[in-house]
Design a protein around this nucleic acid. Structure first.
Lengths: 333, 333
DNA sequence: CATGACAATGAAAATGTTTTCAAAATAAAT
DNA sequence: ATTTATTTTGAAAACATTTTCATTGTCATG
């Protein structure tokens, strides 16, 4: 419990505090000789600068805030791994803010984040309302805290940098695949809440359907299994379906289960495709055809982008689009 | 970007800094009259105390470190939700440390955590080696930082509090269920790495098997789907199996898929059961029988326990065991 | 009315760094 | 050898709070 301060180091190395501080933060500004001596003492004593004192004096925290909606979504968890790996490389700590369902405390969180004096913000919520976008703009303009949108984008705005894949194009491609299989009644299964990325998926779907001269059908259901199965059953009674593109793997799998219960064969009767390439897609039977989204990379690249912004480095492309691919498996022809 | 400090508040409310500080932290020590005036000024100015200055002066951070191995494990992500919800209630921030695979930087992380001066530590790694346990003991003894083990326990030690379910008993029960179904060749599918909780599951399995006079078979495979399917295929060639208890849902589902590929019927030929009751279990077909582990609660309760420790409240039971239940679905008779 | 007890306040110290500014040491140039 | 420029160092200020200690104000009690 013996707190080793910069004083102890200075005393032992026979230099002033200032020199110790410099040896740590601006090594080039101190004579190699003394620098080495100081660093050795630091090593010996196991000294580690107190983060609070440091933050207070420098007005920098080497901490980034990661704001997420719900940790248990598979995609978000995997993104965190990418974020953390890069954060470690650049020596940033991660302060985690999980929004509660209502998100009424937006203002509260803003204040908390300001008080914490984070150097940057990663926003992982794929639902970006105008309110929330404005909130992020304020963070950036009023408080000079760089922000990166991870796995989302806000249409017609490129003032806040973002990292994601081209969801519109991906949805177009996967829908096109079903069209090429000769499917006539292709449904998109989306979510009730208007997630930004799902909007993009919907418009990609629409483009492919219209291009083929077919009729679009968008069905919005809940992400929760017990709710959507009920919903799907109803659909089978009332609609003719021979193709489904779901906005998430888990929803696609859930749909497949209901289809089977209704004695429909996959893929002979219905082709099904999902998004993300999670374990759900791989473990399902038949295995799910889906868009492979490089989730880990999206996390890693956003964190890297954020470090650049925090260091005021020049950022050429404010909207980073990563590559995706289509993985064909047993759920389609 | 206008920094509002405690000075501004003091000036405007016509009191000293000390009084403002007290109005915030020890409201009972300031006259209701002035307290209200101060609080109103705080509200008006939108003042929020600077976390660094506060941390430096008080030597408290109102921050807890959450140490996790790998964010993308479904159970860990859901636990985070429970942790975050309770943390919010008690106004703690969450500093996230994701261990890298090698965990060679254990010492590094220790120093970082000390520098950050967190008030408490939640350790979510279900693999606790003697080294790591010692590391946590040091944290507690040397630096007086309370630690709680979440979803693990360290056998024969109760000096570090823990929250989990009785995995030994749960494994016993689920194995017993297969025994009662008349299964004769029940395998446990565990992991190659020696996770603490998996050890407990294994011994619960062994107890049930021995009690029934059967021969135990423990197979250790990888959690990764592409690796373990290969492994499972081999097993089918060389072993007679009519029951499987897997340490995780996803492994159980993976096994079921391989079984089907080998033209084995579930549950008529083989009963399969898993652990956790994740979405994998619900979405699988047949749906997976499994032990329902209250993951969210485990997270929430550990965080609550940690707050008690941080406030030096009396903690009567250092080992909290939450209830579990067995959910029977289509993968067993 | 004086006295003591206690509540409410303020001044100043303490927290452990970084950073600025000036001084000292060294190197380069004349 | 002196002057000038440059590098290296140290003293002290700044960062924004909390906390200690002393002082003032308030009230009840003898």
């Amino acid at each position: 419990m013996n707190k080793i301060t910069i004083y102890d180091v200075a005393l032992r190395a026979k230099v002033s505090l200032a020199t110790v501080s410099r040896a740590i933060n601006n090594p080039e500004k101190v004579k190699p000789d003394t620098r080495e001596r100081v660093l050795r003492v630091i090593e010996d004593l196991g000294y580690k600068p107190n983060a609070f004192a440091r933050g207070l004096a420098s007005r920098k925290s080497t901490t980034v805030a990661v704001i997420v909606p719900d940790m248990s979504r598979a995609s978000i968890a995997e993104m965190m791994n990418g974020i953390a790996d890069i954060a470690r490389v650049y020596k940033y700590s991660i302060l985690l803010y999980i929004l509660d369902q209502e998100e009424l405390n937006q203002e509260e969180i803003l204040k908390e984040i300001i008080a914490a004096q984070v150097d940057g913000i990663l926003y992982l919520n794929d639902e970006v309302t105008p309110d929330q976008y404005e909130f992020l703009q304020r963070m950036r303009d009023e408080y000079r805290i760089p922000v990166v949108l991870t796995n989302t984008m806000y249409p017609d705005h490129d003032d806040i940098p973002s990292v994601s894949i081209d969801y519109e194009k991906a949805a177009y491609e996967v829908t096109k695949k079903l069209v090429d299989e000769g499917r006539q009644n292709i449904f998109m299964v989306s979510t009730v809440r208007k997630y930004m990325v799902n909007d993009l998926k919907e418009s990609g779907y629409l483009r492919a359907i219209e291009e083929a001269g077919l009729t679009p059908h968008i069905m919005r259901t809940s992400g929760r299994v017990n709710v959507n199965t009920e919903h799907f059953h109803e659909y089978f009674r009332n609609h003719k379906v021979d193709g489904v593109v779901a906005v998430r793997d888990s929803i696609a799998v859930s749909f497949m289960n209901v289809a089977r219960q209704n004695h429909v064969k996959i893929p002979s009767d219905i082709s099904v495709a999902g998004f993300q390439n999670t374990k759900y897609a791989i473990l399902a039977r038949p295995a799910l055809t889906c868009v492979d989204v490089p989730i880990y990379d999206i996390g890693a690249v956003s964190m890297r982008l954020l470090t650049k912004l925090m260091n005021q480095e020049e950022v050429t492309t404010p909207e980073v689009i990563l590559d995706h691919s289509l993985i064909a498996r047993g759920s389609t022809l």
